[in-house]
Simulated assay, not measured.
Amino acid sequence: MIDGLIAGRMYGSAEERSGQAGSAYVTCKVRAATDDGDTIMCNVIAFNDKVRQALLALNDGDSVSLSGALTPKVWVDKQGKPRPAIDLIAHQILTAYPSMASA
């Protein structure tokens, strides 16, 4: 496990779901810019109540920073080119909105 911090913009909206045991969680995607001008997609899942609520309040394109357990991945696009991706289990969140900044 890697403890990571990512910053980027929401890609679409967060979705609330529930597990088989009834536990609630939120999933979303964050698009983060790389130093070469490309972007990397981060697949986010959050179980913490405050982080879940903050993610649900964000809209497509909103800026967000998240920290948590990070797993790097690789996927292949339609042209057969390998592309990087990140899975993140979010433990903390920071947004531009004061009411969500201390989640």
Rank of each mutant, 00 (worst) to 15 (best):
M1V: 15
D3S: 14
D3C: 08
G4P: 03
G4L: 01
L5H: 03
I6L: 09
I6N: 01
G8A: 03
G8Y: 00
R9P: 03
R9N: 12
M10E: 01
G12S: 02
G12H: 04
G12C: 02
G12P: 01
E15Q: 15
E16Y: 00
S18I: 12
G19M: 08
Q20D: 14
A21Y: 14
A21H: 15
G22D: 03
G22I: 04
S23W: 13
V26R: 05
V26G: 02
V26Y: 06
T27E: 13
T27D: 03
T27R: 13
C28V: 12
C28E: 05
C28I: 08
C28A: 15
K29W: 10
V30Y: 00
R31C: 14
R31N: 15
A32L: 10
A33L: 05
D35S: 14
D35H: 12
D35K: 07
D36E: 06
D36R: 04
D36C: 02
G37Y: 09
G37S: 07
T39Y: 12
C42S: 06
N43E: 14
V44A: 06
V44D: 09
V44W: 07
A46M: 04
A46E: 07
F47L: 07
N48T: 13
D49H: 13
K50Y: 04
K50D: 11
V51T: 02
V51P: 01
R52D: 11
R52W: 10
Q53W: 03
Q53M: 07
L56A: 00
L56K: 00
L58Q: 08
N59S: 13
N59V: 10
G61M: 11
D62S: 11
S63T: 09
S63I: 05
S65W: 07
L66A: 09
L66V: 10
L66C: 06
S67M: 11
G68R: 05
A69I: 13
L70V: 07
P72E: 02
P72W: 00
P72S: 02
V74S: 11
V74Y: 03
V76C: 05
V76E: 04
D77H: 00
D77N: 12
D77G: 04
K78Y: 05
K78M: 03
K78W: 08
Q79I: 04
G80Y: 04
G80E: 06
G80H: 01
K81R: 12
P82M: 12
P82H: 09
R83P: 06
P84W: 04
P84V: 04
A85E: 11
D87G: 06
L88W: 07
L88V: 01
A90Y: 01
H91L: 07
H91M: 10
H91Y: 11
H91P: 02
Q92P: 01
I93R: 09
L94V: 14
L94T: 11
L94S: 11
T95W: 06
T95N: 07
A96S: 13
A96T: 11
A96H: 13
A96F: 12
S99A: 11
M100E: 14
A103T: 10
A103I: 04
